[in-house]
Simulated assay, not measured.
Amino acid sequence: MTHITPSAEKAKASSPSLLAGIPELLPGLALTAAIATAAVITRNLTGWAALSPLILSIILGMATRNLFTVSATLESGIAFSLRRLLRLGIVLLGLQVTVGQVLSLGGAGLAMVALTLAVTFVAIRAAGRALGVERELVDLIAAGTSVCGASAVIATNTVVRGRQEHVAYAIACVTLFGCLSMFTYPLLTAPLSLDARAYGLWSGATIHEVAQVVAASFQAGDAAGTFGTISKLARVAMLAPLVMVLAVAVRARQGGASKASAPMPWFVLGFIAMMLVNSAFDIPRDVNATLALANTFLLSMALAAMGLQTDIRKLKAEGWRPLALGAFGWLFISAFGFAMLRLFGF
């Protein structure tokens, strides 16, 4: 006679329920994957590397949400993409940078990048309060401008818990002003008397998105492109401590509120772990490239889900003040970054 222990009975009972939830996720996952695929294909067809699939995904998701009726059967898969796949994508983001790359900037370069990031974040928060912009939206614009664009916005939102309209507005700001930098920076190389190293550092320390940095910095040559990419990756690495500090600040501000209202972003530790793995092991270039594509696709699915939950009417209701804040952040980080460049002798 076979005896089944209580723990075995519990496992047996729970397994079917776990498996039963998977079919409910599939329709929504299929929709977010389809939108992410369309975004990637569109970027590839245009051949414009700076046209981020992340941005295209949220735009396509918003169009779908506001032009068509999104069935209730899709909601669970959309929510899964927005929460679980988002965190997985942020963890994999750590594989795009190594400790060696960050340290290769040297003490002065790292200090310049870190100071520009920190002071810009604080300045945007102060300006946001003066303009009367909602605190959550201010934090998202500040993170997207000072760190790494859309990726920083969605990572920060796991802590500040802004509305989907806040996230969409913040991403629109960093996209708009990052693109302006991408087009104007190459024109400023000669007037500002910047050599390849200085121009690359300035671009990487101040332009919003990674793709925008690559597009702008390589226009001044391979050396400028290399310095631009490395300094930008240093900013990406600083996303982890920023989100952790924000989490502590939010929890303190809420005066010991429940963990559900101010979660500690433990997935950021996964980001750090992946960065250390990428630093400790020589991952083949083709494997790393594949992982980078997978990471982009996961984050695109998450942003597609975000777009599918964004009401354009509510987005319009945010008004002009957040846009003015985004413009202030763009001008501030550009000017302050240049001042730091000269201060540190580049």
Rank of each mutant, 00 (worst) to 15 (best):
W320S: 14
V119G: 11
I171W: 03
I41L: 03
W266N: 11
D139H: 08
A223V: 14
E24A: 14
S193M: 03
V153L: 04
R43S: 14
V99L: 13
P263N: 00
L343R: 09
L246N: 04
W48I: 15
I230C: 04
A33V: 04
P186E: 01
G225H: 02
A8K: 08
S57L: 02
L74Y: 01
K314N: 15
E134M: 09
I141L: 05
T42K: 07
L18M: 10
G109N: 09
P186A: 02
C179D: 14
H208S: 15
A220Q: 02
W320L: 11
L31A: 13
L242F: 13
N288M: 10
A205C: 11
A237R: 06
W48N: 15
S7G: 13
V245C: 13
T296M: 09
A155D: 05
A170F: 05
C179L: 10
W320F: 10
L233S: 07
A249G: 08
T69Q: 08
P186V: 03
K316T: 13
L85R: 05
T32L: 11
A50R: 08
R163T: 15
Q164S: 15
P265T: 03
A152G: 13
I272D: 10
P23N: 07
L298M: 10
A155I: 00
G345K: 07
D222Y: 05
L242C: 14
L117T: 13
F183N: 07
I141T: 13
I4S: 08
A260L: 13
A20N: 11
P53C: 09
Q219E: 00
A8G: 09
G204E: 03
R129P: 03
H166F: 04
I78G: 00
I141V: 12
T46H: 08
G228N: 04
S261I: 09
T37A: 14
F227M: 05
A33Q: 05
V213Q: 11
T98C: 06
H3G: 14
L343G: 15
G256L: 09
G109R: 04
I4P: 01
E136Y: 08
I124G: 02
L298V: 07
G100E: 14
I59F: 12
A170D: 05
F328N: 00
F338M: 05
G307D: 12
A72H: 07
S151D: 10
V99R: 06
A196C: 02
A280C: 15
E136D: 14
S261H: 10
V97W: 00
A170E: 09
Q309H: 12
A114C: 15
L74F: 01
M244C: 12
L308H: 02
G225C: 07
T116W: 05
L325G: 09
A34P: 07
M264S: 04
S7N: 13
A249M: 10
